[in-house]
Write a protein that binds this DNA or RNA. Structure first.
Lengths: 117, 117
DNA sequence: TGTAATATGTCGATAACCGACATATTTAAT
DNA sequence: ATTAAATATGTCGGTTATCGACATATTACA
């Protein structure tokens, strides 16, 4: 059988990392676009700091959850932007994280039936 | 109006802290019972380390999210166990965290409609 | 011309977590 | 009776992701 990727090793994701992966899950983006997208996705609640963003990108590249790809955008002045997209592993991890979150909510609701929110 | 508690200041909770609060949300427990309950609640997936547990209990007491209460259990040999229960603030924080998790899942499913899992 | 937005990055501090170690009591087995 | 396992609480040092502050260059616009 295939060498199964142990997605659990990467879980749980912290909130900023979760949004970074989610942000690029439907299309590749460069750093600054991830910043804006995360703020938009979270309804303005979450504003990633630069330290978090670029630190996480470096880490995620290293872990093989994301990869660098050439940007579509006008390369303009010989300075190509850095676009990132999910790898298959990254997509698996994101999906596993969503399932983990759903389990968490289910467990909590089971344990606290009075909170039907 | 009442001095509203800013539950958001305590969020997001990390996984161990979430389970600690959830564990004592329906009845007071002492440390070791929280350890066992968390393992049970998580289907055996999560085993809190002692460092995490007692560190978190100290922190949560300090933050006013939990409080010490006398234990029902047989005090036995003059050594009273330390039982903990949620404060109102703690209950609010737990509820807010559950809602945050639900929002996260909703946002992710909206952004990734293909993952209907 | 200048200023805001875009875009990428570094650095030091903080906070929560983890595993390892320590220790005492209680229960159950041999 | 002795031992071993489970119960119960705690400390310590190390690791890691995050954060805000700082730095810098380019592009768009007023």
């Amino acid at each position: 059988m295939e060498a199964a990727i142990k997605t659990e090793e990467f879980l749980p994701l912290r909130e900023p990392t979760f949004f970074i992966l989610l942000s690029i899950s439907n299309q590749k983006k460069h750093g600054y676009a991830i910043l804006q997208d995360t703020e938009s996705l979270s309804g303005g609640k979450i504003k990633l700091s630069n330290g978090t963003l670029y630190g996480a990108l470096t880490r995620l590249l290293d872990q093989g959850l994301i990869e660098r790809v050439p940007s579509d955008e006008p390369a303009a002045s010989g300075k190509p932007r850095k676009a990132y997209q999910l790898t298959r592993t990254g997509a698996s991890v994101l999906q596993a994280e969503i399932e983990r979150l759903e389990n968490l909510v289910r467990t909590a609701r089971r344990h606290l039936p009075e909170l039907t929110g």
